[in-house]
């Protein structure tokens, strides 16, 4: 365990933000294709790096993955097919967009759940506030007159 810690420390101590450098340029027929490629490589993760997509990573494996993306695009593969081909080899880890399945349904549904839940709580707060003021007893006529007198500045000392 200690050894592992030391190794980790040695590997990571020189950490810092990593730089991106364009290593190769691919030819595309249209701008739209070019954009599609840029988007695909931005959404795929380098399996070896410290959290980088394959667009920005200098690792050799990232280059291989970019090559694969390009090759499959040239063979008219769809985005799903390309991503799946990489997932098949490297695991779900390389997809930055988590799949929607049993495990992640909570994750994807969370914003809706949280907001709706929150709205319900607020609705409850409003409802309770309304109910509370309805429950408050009305002032009796006697008290009302007393109040009016006091507010208008007339001091009636006989009233306790």
């Amino acid at each position: 365990m200690r050894f592992f810690a030391v190794v980790l420390a040695c590997v990571f101590w020189f950490s810092g933000p990593a730089q991106a450098e364009v290593k190769e340029v691919y030819d595309f027929d249209t701008r739209a294709e070019e954009q599609r490629y840029q988007q695909l490589i931005a959404e795929l993760r380098c399996p070896k790096c410290q959290n980088q997509n394959i667009a920005d990573s200098n690792a050799p494996i990232s280059k291989d993955m970019r090559d694969q993306v390009y090759r499959m695009m040239k063979n008219d593969a769809s985005n799903d097919e390309i991503v799946n081909a990489l997932v098949l080899r490297f695991g779900e880890f390389v997809q930055y967009k988590p799949p929607v399945d049993r495990r992640t349904i909570l994750l994807w549904a969370f914003p809706a759940i949280a907001v709706i839940g929150g709205f319900l709580v607020v609705a409850g707060v409003v409802w309770r506030s309304r109910k509370r003021s309805q429950d408050e007893p009305e002032l009796s006529e006697h008290d009302k007159t007393r109040a009016e007198r006091m507010l208008s500045g007339q001091d009636d000392q006989t009233d306790r």
Binding site: E43, F93, Q95, Y96, K97, P98, P99, R103
Partner: peptide, 11 residues
């Protein structure tokens, strides 16, 4: 033990 997922920009 339900796998190693990545959650990034698209999500």
């Amino acid at each position: 033990d339900m796998g190693k997922l990545s959650i990034g920009e698209p999500f």
